[in-house]
Design a binder for these strands. Structure first.
Length: 263
DNA sequence: AGAGGGATCTTCT
DNA sequence: GAAGATCCCTCTC
């Protein structure tokens, strides 16, 4: 008997349109390198085999790409063959040129940010505060890119937890599943993404790629809010260029005011 | 639940 | 020399 897949939230969902909103149903074991097994387990049916997203997906305007990322699945293949998977639940659009919050504001092009000017689908990984990394994907548009802010962990949670704990104190509180990738630098830690990925192509890379997720999101399932940590950017700091899946537990910052307004 | 501060170092001025 | 698209721990209410 084929498993039924829910594509659109039920009407009584009350905004809890996500898999980890209340009760996590994610896999809790590592995929030990057997990709086919792990994938078929999550996707269930043969006809819906994971579909790797290619150049056409990435080659779209920045805001559209930022929204299109939601629900898609980021995959990281480690050197030992293990595959880690997370569903993208929060992104930010950085438009380049006019966008004062963008590293490429006013056309600024430096050694650090050249990846933002490379073809759509190029990864831009930069180090922040000397210790953390953030992952962006370049989009259509000069100097434009999308920051990935959080993932809902799906596969390889034990490995993610181990990678995240490398930097934490022994005495610290144990990480919940939903805390593994709920921030731009947390997801880089959990997926072992560092500067070596900078300027590489997410559409063709062998160690990181994107798969089409099973869910189709309705417009009401997506919240558009102000971006985080860019208060220096004046009016651009307030523009609704952050997008997240409403009700998802793994979103790093929830904007209650915006969500109220949407009703 | 929220505020505050330290860590830590590359990048660009 | 200063700032930064963050995270985590500690303290307080």
């Amino acid at each position: 008997m084929p498993r039924k897949r829910k594509l659109v939230p039920d009407s009584d969902d009350k905004g809890q349109n996500s898999r980890i909103s209340k009760t996590p149903t994610v896999e809790h074991q590592d995929g030990k390198g057997d990709a086919c097994f792990a994938v078929s387990k999550y996707f269930g049916d043969e006809k819906m085999k994971p579909f790797r997203l290619g150049p056409d997906f990435f080659n779209q305007p920045c805001i559209g790409l930022a929204k299109s990322f939601l629900g898609q699945i980021l995959v990281r293949k480690l050197p030992d063959g293990r595959e880690l998977r997370g569903r993208i639940v929060e992104t930010e659009a950085y438009l380049g040129g006019e966008d004062e919050a963008s590293h490429s504001a006013n056309g600024k092009r430096t050694g650090r940010n050249v990846a933002m000017f490379m073809p759509a689908g190029t990864m831009y990984v930069y180090q922040i505060y000397g210790i953390y990394f953030c992952l962006n994907i370049s989009s259509q548009g000069e100097g434009a890119a999308v920051l990935l802010r959080s993932l809902e962990p799906l596969q390889g949670l034990d490995t993610m937890r181990h990678l995240r704990n490398l930097r934490r104190k022994e005495k610290g509180k144990a990480l919940k599943d939903w805390e593994l990738c709920n921030g731009p630098s947390k997801l880089c830690q959990a997926l072992a993404i560092n500067k070596s990925f900078d300027r590489r192509d997410l559409a063709s890379d062998g160690e990181a790629w994107l798969e089409r997720g099973p869910d189709v999101l309705t417009a009401q399932a997506v919240v558009a809010a102000a971006r985080i940590g860019i208060n220096y950017a004046g009016e651009w700091a307030r523009k609704p260029l952050r997008f997240y899946i409403k009700g998802n537990k793994c979103v790093s910052v929830v904007d209650k005011a915006v969500e109220r307004e949407a009703l």
